[in-house]
């Protein structure tokens, strides 16, 4: 039990969040262990993205506690939050690449901003390594507008990888991509987990992606943690509300 406590990298305890009368998270509880990929599965508008935005501190929960790498996110000062964020990567649903910057500048931005005092050659190497890890080493001087949807997603992943995060939060990583590109991205997420031993929360309702990347799946229904299990366990469930996702 003691060793499991140590291994918890994200602890979400009884978190509630509402927008007016819309209660999106309702006493939600979840532990993420080191090195595992957890998929949060739920219908659109069920509060999946809100959950990871609370974890990274972009939103504040109304109730409950969120602990990331041993720190309570709500209690952190702005500087402490920045420090924590250097260890947590976030892949946005829309990729959020800076339109006015080249791919290289997009990747250098978090390195410069998180106060990493790297020389230009170290920076070049970090950019090159991050691009190679997503298989797009040749794109460094391209603008985001010149990239395809799949390439943008890979560059956005490279940007989250460049700080060598311990945790990565993926917000619908395969949405808007064709099935083949989506499969490629799912395999890349799995490869990142194996290569860098990262812990991840993946928000998705793409069942192909879920099957590839998930160590455990959390069913988020009515704002609550309805059920947790592996893909095999949940896909064989008799519960109609779970079956809806797998059929």
């Amino acid at each position: 039990m003691q060793s499991k406590q140590v291994d918890i990298v994200i602890g979400v305890k009884n978190v509630s969040k509402s927008f007016g009368d819309n209660h999106v998270l309702n006493d939600f509880t979840l532990d993420v262990f080191k090195g595992e990929n957890i998929v949060v599965l739920g219908k659109s508008g069920s509060g999946k993205s809100v959950l990871i935005k609370c974890i990274i501190g972009l939103m504040k929960q109304d109730k409950g506690d969120i602990n990331v790498l041993g720190k309570s996110v709500a209690d952190l000062s702005s500087d402490e939050l920045d420090q924590l964020r250097s260890k947590v990567g976030f892949l946005f649903q829309s990729n959020a690449l800076y339109d006015s910057m080249t791919v290289r500048e997009n990747l250098e931005f978090p390195l410069r901003r998180h106060g990493k005092s790297l020389s230009q050659s170290e920076m070049d190497m970090a950019v090159q390594q991050a691009l190679e890890s997503v298989g797009l080493a040749h794109t460094e001087n391209m603008m985001p507008s010149e990239l395809s949807g799949g390439m943008k997603k890979r560059i956005a992943i490279a940007r989250t990888l460049i700080l060598k995060p311990e945790i990565i939060l993926y917000d619908e990583p395969t949405t808007g991509l064709d099935p083949i590109t989506g499969k490629g991205i799912s395999e890349l997420i799995l490869e990142i987990q194996r290569k860098f031993n990262t812990s991840s929360i993946i928000i998705s309702h793409d069942m192909h992606c879920v099957k590839i990347v998930a160590n455990r799946i959390v069913m988020l229904i009515d704002g609550e943690c309805y059920k947790i299990g592996t893909y095999e366990e949940l896909s064989h469930s008799d519960d109609q509300r779970i079956r809806e996702f797998f059929d």
Binding site: K53, L58, F92, A96, D99, P110, R113
Partner: peptide
């Protein structure tokens, strides 16, 4: 406006930039 709706402002926030 475009940065806001494409989450670039949030991305800046998580990149340690105000």
């Amino acid at each position: 406006g475009s940065m806001k709706v494409t989450e670039q402002i949030d991305a800046m926030d998580v990149s340690g930039t105000n």
